[in-house]
Design a protein around this nucleic acid. Structure first.
Lengths: 199, 199
DNA sequence: CGACTTCTTGACTCGACGTTCAAAAAGTCG
DNA sequence: CGACTTTTTGAACGTCGAGTCAAGAAGTCG
C-alpha cells in the first residue's frame, strides 16, 4: 500500500502538541478554529483534513495529554520510597515538561478542565476522563499497596481509598490554583496530606 | 422617594435563583440567553433590564450561590464535635437544598465550575472565586482551631493547612464527581481524609 | 508525460449568539 | 385626566464561529 498524493506540509504530531497547549490554556469553548489557525500556522481546511472537526481535535489532544501524564506518573512512582514521589506529584499537578518547555505553564489539569467543561454532556469526553481517573487511582493504589507492605505508608485505610483521596487532592489543587496560588500554603497543605499517609 | 413606572411582573429573586440552577447545570458559556428566556419565562429585554448583560447576570448568580453555601457551612461547623460536621460537608459538596429542592442536583460546585471556565481571564470572576475560597478556609480553619484546642483534631498540622487541604478535597471531589460517582469509594476516601484529622 | 491521489488555500455558507431598540403597556403623581 | 417613568415585547442587528467547498498545488505510479 504505497502512500500517494500530495504530502502533508506540517508535522501532525507537533501541531497536535501546540493545539494541546492552546486548548489547555483557553479551554475547549474559548478556543476558536481561527485561534488555532493563527497559532498553528496551518489553514482551516488542513486542520479539518488532519484532525476532523473541533471536538475530535480537542479529544485527541486530551488523550495525548493523559498519555504523557500517565508516563510521568508511572515513572515517578516506580521507585521506593513512594511518599517523596507522591509529594512531587502533588506539587506539580500539571507539570508536563515535555509539552510546555517554553511558555509558562497553562492553568490546571487538562483532564480536570475537560471534566468541568464537557462532562457529563459529552459522552466521549466522559469516557476519556473516567478512564484517566481510573488509571490514576490504579497506578497510585498500586504504589501505595507496595508502600504499605514496606511499612512506609499507614494501613489504616486501603490503598484504593488513599488513592481516591489523592485524586481529589490533585484535581482540587489544580483547579483552585487557577485563582492564584499561595505557594507556601499550598505546600503545607500538601505536606499535611502526605504526612497523613505516613505509617 | 416614591417608586414609579410600570411595576416588574416577575420576581427578581426567584428568577435569579432559577437562572442560578441553569448556569449551574450547564455552565456559563453553554447557557444562552435564549435558554434563559425559555427556562425563566421572562423576555430578553426584561432580563437585560433587571440584570444587565449575561456576564453580570452570571456573576450575580455565583455570588448568590456562595452566600447560600457559606450560610450552610457556617451553621454546620458552629457545633462540637467538628469532625462529623466536616464529614457531612465533604459528603454533600454541592447540597444547597434551598435552591435545588426539586430537580436532581446540578453537577459540581458552581464556584469550582466558574474557576475552571472564567478564571483567571475574567478578573471579576477571579475576585469572587478567590474571596469564596478564602472565606471557606477561614471558616473551616476557625472550626479546626477550636477542635484542636478541644483535643478532637490533631495538631500535627496548623488549622490553616488542614483547611486548605480540605478545600482541595471538596473541590476535587466536586469536580471528579461529574464523571460519575462511585458512592462507596468516595465515602471511604472521605473517611480516610477525616480520620487523618483525628487527634 | 499523464492519470491519480492527497493536501492546501481562503472564500463562502449558515446558523447561533449577545445585545439593542422602538413601540406599546402599566403603573404613579399632581 | 395627562405627564412621567419604568417595564414588556419581540423583531432586528451585527458579529463570530464551525464547518464546507472548489480550484489549484504537489506529490506518486505506470
Amino acid at each position: 500500500m504505497a502512500r500517494t498524493g500530495r504530502p502533508r506540509e506540517f508535522d501532525r504530531q507537533q501541531t497536535l502538541e501546540r493545539a494541546l497547549k492552546l486548548f489547555w490554556s483557553r479551554g475547549y469553548g474559548a478556543t476558536s478554529i481561527q485561534d488555532l489557525v493563527e497559532a498553528l500556522a496551518v489553514e482551516r481546511g488542513s486542520l479539518y483534513g488532519a484532525f476532523g472537526d473541533k471536538r475530535r481535535f480537542y479529544l485527541e489532544a486530551v488523550r495525548l495529554y493523559w498519555e504523557v501524564y500517565e508516563r510521568h506518573l508511572t515513572a515517578a512512582l516506580d521507585t521506593a520510597p513512594v511518599l517523596p514521589a507522591l509529594r512531587e506529584i502533588l506539587t506539580h499537578p500539571a507539570r508536563l515538561d515535555e509539552l510546555i518547555s517554553d511558555r509558562g505553564v497553562p492553568q490546571g489539569c487538562l483532564v480536570g478542565n475537560t471534566t468541568a467543561e464537557l462532562v457529563p454532556q459529552d459522552s466521549e469526553a466522559t469516557e476519556i476522563v473516567t478512564r484517566s481517573y481510573r488509571r490514576f487511582t490504579d497506578i497510585v493504589a498500586g504504589a501505595l499497596r507496595r508502600a504499605q507492605a514496606a511499612g512506609e505508608v499507614t494501613d489504616a485505610s486501603s490503598p484504593e481509598a488513599q488513592a481516591q483521596l489523592l485524586l481529589y487532592i490533585v484535581q482540587g489543587l489544580s483547579l483552585v490554583s487557577r485563582a492564584g496560588l499561595d505557594q507556601s500554603s499550598a505546600l503545607t497543605a500538601i505536606d499535611t496530606a502526605v504526612d497523613g499517609l505516613r505509617a
